[in-house]
Design a protein around this nucleic acid. Structure first.
Lengths: 230, 230
DNA sequence: TAGTGGTCTAGACCACTCA
DNA sequence: GAGTGGTCTAGACCACTAT
């Protein structure tokens, strides 16, 4: 009767789903029956089934029972990395260069994103990230100094703004957008490529409780790929 | 002493982390102590802490105790959608047009990805996806017919290959790569744009148990953005 | 070796929702 | 009303690992 562990039970149940023993949308036995079949407590079955439901393989309803998901959704989970870590994972040495660092009134698009009123200024940063002294990515960032006043006193020689913010405002929320864009002259110059080159762009805005912290665009040098697993 | 539910306990604990009450890397009280403090069973605390650890906020070790994660990793989860659903979410009518559908020996790059030996042929498909009759994305796909022989008998007028595969081989694994590319002449023609335009590309390979199923490239029309939440 | 988290159990009660 | 999953509890044992 195999070992009782929710991991093993989960694995066994998953195999029964993948093998097609239970068709898409089909009702599977109730927790008590499975507990009996596998010779374990109901709560062990419950943990396994909840995990499979989290993974999108099952849909559960009280009284309605548990069904195999009829419209399987492939979902991917990936980590939004710090640029330095991406570079170092490639086996390269990371450096960066802050080419702009000014306090000024942002354009209205940024004002909206950071939820600022019209008179407030914000910190504008432009940074080039290097891998082995070759340009890797170009970053345009605005920081809401009202939300993180300390930012004005940090010297960004050894640590990038990205990393400093992650450590100072650790568990913020955010949204992320990925898209492709043709490099304009300015971006092209920054990462030493031709204008018009297709670049992968990440746009990110983060906030914490009620304060908007920062918004940024990150233009990766051509050839960059974001990889993930289903 | 508030209600006992792992959801509520999780929320309360999360607030203590976000507020900075427990610093980055700091040790937090043991499960038993927290159970005592919140007046609930240890297993309730355990569920809450495990959830926070899953979310990347805590790191747990036997005997070592539970610590706030020192290097918070922002992770995002998103669903890999079916193109039809993406189009319909925009409020547009979805149609598609299969412009190629041939059985032939694939190039070696595809052969490797599908784990085929050199003599085996595979199904090559090219599809244009439309939103309100305007091109939305262009798809190049190879299908391993040995893994899904039925595919040869399916008429792809009403259902796209993507959807048929999702339903026929429901819970496959896969990897996904995102990047940007300049449109070549062929792709540009397919989605009615200029060569050189920066396009967002998704490359995906899926497999199930031991069989490789399909590999594809999806070129989205300019302006497409992939959105997600941290 | 001792303290911590990981897990299982048996029983219980409740919330939801289908018929 | 009855059957299902959601959750809590108290107790137990084990696996790991810091000291």
């Amino acid at each position: 009767m195999i070992k009782n562990s929710h991991h093993q039970v989960r694995q066994l149940l998953q195999e029964r789903i993948e093998s097609g023993e239970w068709a898409l949308g089909a009702l599977i036995p109730a927790e008590i029956d499975l507990a009996d079949e596998y010779g374990c407590a109901r709560s062990t079955i419950n943990r396994a089934l909840q995990a499979l439901a989290d993974a999108g393989m099952l849909v559960r309803k009280r009284k309605g029972g548990t069904r195999v998901c009829d419209l399987p959704v492939r979902q991917a989970k990936f980590a939004i990395p710090i640029v330095r870590e991406q570079v170092e994972e490639l086996g390269c040495i990371y450096t960066h260069n802050v080419i702009e660092n000014v306090l000024e009134i942002p354009p209205s698009s940024v004002m909206t994103r950071l939820n600022l009123s019209s008179k407030q200024s914000a910190l504008r940063l432009e940074t080039i990230h290097f891998a082995d002294e070759k340009p890797f990515a170009y970053e345009q960032r605005w920081v809401n100094v009202k939300a993180v006043p300390d930012v004005l006193n940090v010297p960004f020689n050894n640590i990038s703004m990205n990393e400093w913010l992650v450590k100072s405002v650790p568990f913020s929320n955010g949204d992320v957008v990925f898209y492709a864009v043709n490099a304009d002259q300015k971006v092209a110059d920054s990462i030493e490529t031709e204008p018009g080159t297709a670049l992968f762009v990440v746009e990110r805005t983060t906030w914490s409780k009620n304060d908007f912290i920062t918004t940024l665009k990150l233009f990766y040098k051509q050839g960059y790929q974001l990889y993930t697993r289903l």
